[in-house]
């Protein structure tokens, strides 16, 4: 059964040109999705709609069969969705442990260790961590929220090849071992190769590649 479903979703910025056109798709738990597409095609917008950061111009998005608008977008973001951003978006005055504890429903320490951070790194100021380490904290924060869906926007965009591979591997594990629905917007073909389902967004339409 799908955890997320898009029904006839359309989106336009100025009511004139539709960035997203009549999108229908279903996403399931335990799968790792990659959404590919050229810059400006609406990938991040689609991710925002799925995460309840914005509302579609037309159509509905269902989470576990329920319209997220009716659920309440803030509630949807809080209970069902976890975001991972390209620029990590960690709170700079909190330690990794405190960042994870922000919305944590699970103990933060084991999760931070699970994503590969050492005890010393866990106590350090987040700004003193490397990009890869910061992204691991962001992933740990997403996992700690116990959300069923993880939405990642270019999670490896700022990372070197080796670290990007490690992060991709962690995300894949999140989907397969933790039964999360992981949806990643990316330009990286390497990351896309790791995905269970690759979706192509082109001219406002979403198609399976």
């Amino acid at each position: 059964m799908s955890i997320l479903e898009l029904r006839n979703v359309q989106y336009s910025y100025d009511q004139k040109k539709n960035v997203l056109k009549n999108i229908n798709a279903q996403m399931e738990r335990g799968k790792f999705y990659a959404i590919l597409g050229p810059s400006g095609c609406g990938k991040t917008t689609l991710l925002s709609l799925l995460g309840g950061l914005d509302s579609p111009s037309q159509g509905t998005i269902l989470f576990d069969g329920q319209d997220i608008e009716k659920l309440g977008l803030a509630k949807h973001r809080k209970n069902n969705i976890a975001f991972i951003f390209q620029s990590y978006n960690l709170i700079d005055y909190l330690t990794p442990k405190e960042n994870v504890a922000l919305t944590s429903k699970l103990p933060p320490l084991p999760i931070l260790q699970l994503v590969g951070l050492t005890t010393e790194e866990i106590k350090r100021n987040v700004l003193k961590l490397s990009g890869g380490q910061q992204q691991r904290v962001a992933i740990a924060r997403a996992l700690a929220s116990d959300a069923k869906v993880i939405l990642a926007d270019e999670p490896t965009g700022n990372l070197d090849e080796k670290t990007a591979a490690e992060i991709t591997s962690i995300l894949k594990e999140c989907a397969h071992q933790m039964q999360k629905c992981v949806i990643v917007v990316t330009h990286s073909s390497d990351l896309a190769k790791q995905a269970d389902v690759v979706l192509q967004l082109k001219k406002g339409l979403l198609q399976e590649a």
């Binding site: 950061l53 949807h76 973001r77 709170i91 922000l102 919305t103």
Partner: peptide
């Protein structure tokens, strides 16, 4: 504003 956005994305009202 960045911090506010992150909190909002996490569902903090």
């Amino acid at each position: 504003v960045h911090e506010t956005g992150v909190y909002a994305a996490m569902g903090i009202g």
